[in-house]
Simulated scan of single mutants.
Amino acid sequence: MQELTHLDSGGAAAMVDVSGKTATRREARAGAVIQTRPDVIELIEQALIKKGDVVATARIAGIMAAKKTSDLIPLCHPLPLSKVAVDFRLYADNGRIEVETLCVVTSQTGVEMEALTAASVGALTVYDMCKAVDPAMKISDIRLLEKQGGKRGHWQREDPTDA
């Protein structure tokens, strides 16, 4: 069993020292799902949500969130992100919105938390903008889909639809 990296020898929370690691290219993809009603998807697609362009706003929110991850998640290192992408797939037939993010960095530590934060905040922004129409929306399946780089190399979720 692997030991927790964010605890010191006395069991106290501590930021991991990455100064001895080599900076390498690292990528992470994450996802989230928003379940709503089919008519809400149609309103989003037709730009009829009163708060504005839902997808564009949620994309910007996700990008901003990735850049602020170290301010939000204790013990995360601030990273010089070289790319953040936040994409949305809307399915009007079943009221499903899929969020997928990609974060890239050349650094001494991974970028998984930034990808997960982007997916979470992107989904929360969709909720915020559409809650007047459907307060029963459900955000779920926030998960890491894939990571590359670093000591452990490549990892990919076997079934990307599995939470």
Rank of each mutant, 00 (worst) to 15 (best):
T22Y: 00
L72Q: 11
H6G: 09
A23Q: 02
V121A: 03
K147R: 03
A13W: 03
Q148L: 11
A123P: 12
I97W: 05
P38V: 07
P78R: 09
P74V: 03
E45A: 13
A66S: 10
C130K: 02
A119F: 02
R26I: 07
R26D: 01
D159G: 08
L81P: 07
R143K: 11
K138V: 12
A163Q: 06
I60A: 11
K67T: 11
Q156T: 09
D141V: 11
P80R: 13
E3C: 13
V40Q: 07
T69R: 10
A115T: 13
R25S: 09
A115N: 09
M1R: 12
A61Q: 01
R152M: 10
A132D: 01
L79A: 08
D141P: 09
A47K: 14
E45I: 12
L48P: 03
G150M: 02
D71T: 11
G31S: 11
D93T: 14
T57N: 02
V18G: 07
A136F: 10
H154C: 11
I44H: 03
L90W: 13
I97Y: 04
F88A: 02
V133L: 00
A61N: 04
A30D: 06
T106V: 15
P80N: 15
A61W: 03
H154L: 12
A13L: 08
V16M: 06
E42I: 07
D53V: 07
D17V: 07
W155N: 03
D162T: 14
V18D: 08
G20L: 07
Y127V: 12
T69W: 05
L145E: 01
W155H: 03
A47S: 11
V111T: 00
A163T: 13
R157A: 13
E42G: 13
G110D: 07
R25H: 06
A118V: 15
K68R: 15
S82R: 08
T161H: 13
S70L: 01
G20M: 10
R143C: 09
G95L: 06
D141W: 08
S120A: 15
L43T: 01
A163L: 12
A28R: 10
L72A: 13
